[in-house]
Structure formats: structure tokens, C-alpha cells
Amino acid sequence: MDRVAVESSVLRSVGYDRRARLLELEFLGGRVYEYAAVPARVHCELMAADSHGRYFVRRIRGRYAYRRLS
């Protein structure tokens, strides 16, 4: 999945697979996580948010199953 670089104090890049509903987030420390069953609107709202990090904390973290990618 291709990721798009974002300006954030938390995230480095964001990717989304609409068909599989997978959200891929690369954090500034280099770790990459894949979040499952994420609606397309959540991805759109994340990308449009004034603060990607704040949106992640409020709307994604703790709400979707995830796994760390190697």
C-alpha cells in the first residue's frame, strides 16, 4: 500500500486501502501499524484534520483492531 507523507508531530505517513478498509499509519519513530475495518470517511477526516495526531488519538486509537507491521 502506498502511503502519503503528512505534516504532523505524531505521524510521518498515512495509507488507505478502500477495498480492504485498512488504514496504515507510519509514526515518526518509524513504526508502522495497520488498522482494520476503518471506514473511508475516517481516512478522509484524518487527512483533512487540522491536527492528524489529535484526530488519531480521538477517533482511531483504541477503536479499531490493529497490528504492527515489520
Score class of each variant (00 low, 15 high):
19 R>Q: 11
20 A>L: 09
17 D>N: 15
49 A>D: 02
38 V>I: 03
40 A>R: 02
31 R>A: 15
18 R>F: 11
45 E>F: 11
46 L>P: 04
45 E>T: 11
26 E>A: 13
40 A>G: 03
14 V>N: 01
28 L>N: 13
15 G>K: 01
37 A>V: 02
28 L>D: 10
35 Y>G: 03
34 E>V: 12
40 A>F: 04
40 A>M: 02
21 R>T: 14
22 L>K: 10
34 E>W: 08
18 R>P: 11
17 D>Y: 01
14 V>H: 00
29 G>D: 15
35 Y>F: 13
30 G>D: 06
34 E>T: 10
27 F>K: 10
24 E>V: 10
40 A>S: 07
46 L>M: 05
40 A>K: 03
44 C>P: 03
31 R>P: 04
44 C>M: 11
29 G>R: 07
35 Y>W: 07
31 R>I: 09
26 E>Y: 07
19 R>P: 03
39 P>H: 12
15 G>I: 05
43 H>Q: 02
33 Y>W: 15
49 A>R: 07
31 R>N: 14
24 E>Q: 09
30 G>Q: 05
47 M>F: 12
17 D>C: 08
20 A>Q: 11
33 Y>A: 08
19 R>D: 13
23 L>D: 00
33 Y>R: 13
39 P>T: 06
39 P>A: 04
47 M>T: 10
48 A>P: 06
43 H>S: 02
47 M>S: 09
49 A>M: 04
15 G>R: 00
44 C>Q: 13
46 L>A: 06
43 H>N: 01
31 R>E: 15
44 C>A: 11
27 F>Y: 12
39 P>G: 04
13 S>Q: 11
13 S>T: 02
48 A>L: 11
37 A>S: 03
24 E>L: 05
15 G>F: 00
34 E>A: 11
25 L>C: 09
16 Y>D: 00
35 Y>P: 04
29 G>F: 09
40 A>H: 04
38 V>G: 01
25 L>R: 02
38 V>Q: 00
46 L>H: 02
26 E>G: 13
